[in-house]
Amino acid sequence: MAAASSDVAAGPPSLLERAFADALDGAEVEDPNSAILDAAYDLFCRQGIQRTTMEDVARRARVSRITVYRRLVSKEALVEAVLLRDFRLYVDRFLADLAGAQTVADRVVTGFVSSLRATRSNPLMTGLMQAEPGAVAPTIVGEDGRVLAAVARFLAGQLRIEQQAGNVGPDVDVGVVAELMVRLSASFFLTPSEVVDLDDDEQVAGIARRYLVPMLQA
C-alpha cells in the first residue's frame, strides 16, 4: 500500500500503531537500552514473558537489576519497549517489500505474503506461541484483539487511499475487506493448514491474487 498514516483510532495508539507511525516518519530504531532489550528479547523467545524476571534480564545483559529498573522503570515498560522495537522492525520489512509493487493488486499480494512470512519466521512470536500459547492467541484475535485491530485499521487506511486514487472500487467497504484479510492472515499464523503450504511464498501469493484481490472490485 502507499505510505501514509493509519486511520486514527479512539484512545491512545497501540504499540503496533506507534511502530507504523515511527516507520512512516522515518524515526530512528537505535535505542540506548539495546543491550537490555536484546537480553529481554532472547529470554522472551526462550521461556516466555511470564517466566522472565527483571533479575533474569539483568543477568543476561550483565548489568545490575537496579540499572534495568532505572532505565525501564518496570517489567511492563520493558515488555513494551521490546515489543515496540520488534514491531518496528516488522513494519520496516513490510514497507520495504511493498516498495517494488506497481499496482494495488501487487501490493495486496506482496503485503499478504510478507506479513505471513514475517510472523511465521519471527522468533519472538513463534517462541511465545510455544512458551505461552494461551496468552498469544487472545492478544491477536481474542476479546482484546489489539494486534489484529491495529493491523486492520492500518490496512483499511491504506485501502482507503487506494480507493481515493481510483484503484479500488468505489462501493468497496474497505473496513470489512481489511478485517477479512487480516483475520485470514492471523488464522494461518495461529493454526497450521493441511491444504496450503504456508512456507511456499508462490502458493501463498496465488491464494492472495485469486481470493483477496477480487474483494477490491465491487
Rank of each mutant, 00 (worst) to 15 (best):
V8C: 06
Y69V: 09
T52Y: 07
G145F: 13
Y69Q: 13
R146C: 01
F188E: 03
R59G: 07
P32I: 02
A101K: 14
E143T: 07
A21S: 08
R18N: 10
Q50Y: 10
T67K: 14
G142T: 04
A9W: 09
R65G: 07
A165P: 04
R153A: 11
A9K: 09
F94A: 03
D7H: 10
A149Q: 07
L95A: 11
A9S: 14
V73L: 10
A208S: 09
E179F: 12
V136G: 01
I140P: 02
R117M: 00
V151F: 14
A99H: 13
A156G: 13
L43N: 00
L148H: 12
P13Q: 04
T67A: 13
S6L: 06
R107W: 01
L128I: 05
R51G: 00
A35T: 09
A118H: 06
L180Y: 10
R107L: 02
T67E: 14
A152R: 14
M54R: 04
L95G: 00
S6Y: 08
A118D: 03
L116M: 07
R120K: 05
F189S: 04
L72Y: 06
L155T: 09
R183K: 11
T67V: 12
V68K: 03
F44S: 06
P170M: 10
D171V: 01
Q102C: 06
R71Y: 13
G127V: 02
I66T: 11
I49S: 05
E80A: 15
A23R: 05
L78G: 02
L84R: 15
A208F: 08
T110W: 04
R70M: 13
R153S: 09
S193G: 11
A3P: 00
A218C: 12
R71F: 04
A218W: 12
Q47P: 04
V213L: 13
Y69E: 08
A77Q: 15
E179M: 11
G48S: 02
V79A: 05
T191L: 11
A205F: 07
D199C: 10
R59K: 14
V136P: 03
A35Q: 15
A81N: 02
Q203N: 04
A19W: 04
G11E: 04
G169N: 10
V174E: 09
A96Y: 07
E143I: 07
P32L: 03
V177P: 04
A81W: 07
D92C: 08
T126L: 06
E179V: 01
D97W: 09
L84H: 15
G206C: 06
E28N: 07
R120L: 04
L212V: 01
D144Q: 14
A19R: 00
G206H: 12
S115F: 07
S5G: 10
A23Y: 06
L216Y: 12
V174Y: 06
M215C: 00
K75Y: 07
A131V: 01
V195C: 09
S115D: 11
V147H: 12
T119K: 11
L216E: 11
Q47S: 02
L37V: 05
D86M: 12
N122R: 08
S115P: 00
N122F: 08
T67Q: 15
Y41C: 01
M54P: 00
Q102E: 15
L95C: 10
P123F: 06
V68G: 03
L95K: 12
V63A: 05
E30S: 08
Q217S: 12
R153C: 03
L180Q: 08
L95Y: 15
L43Y: 03
G127K: 01
G166K: 14
R210N: 10
R120H: 01
R117C: 00
N167R: 15
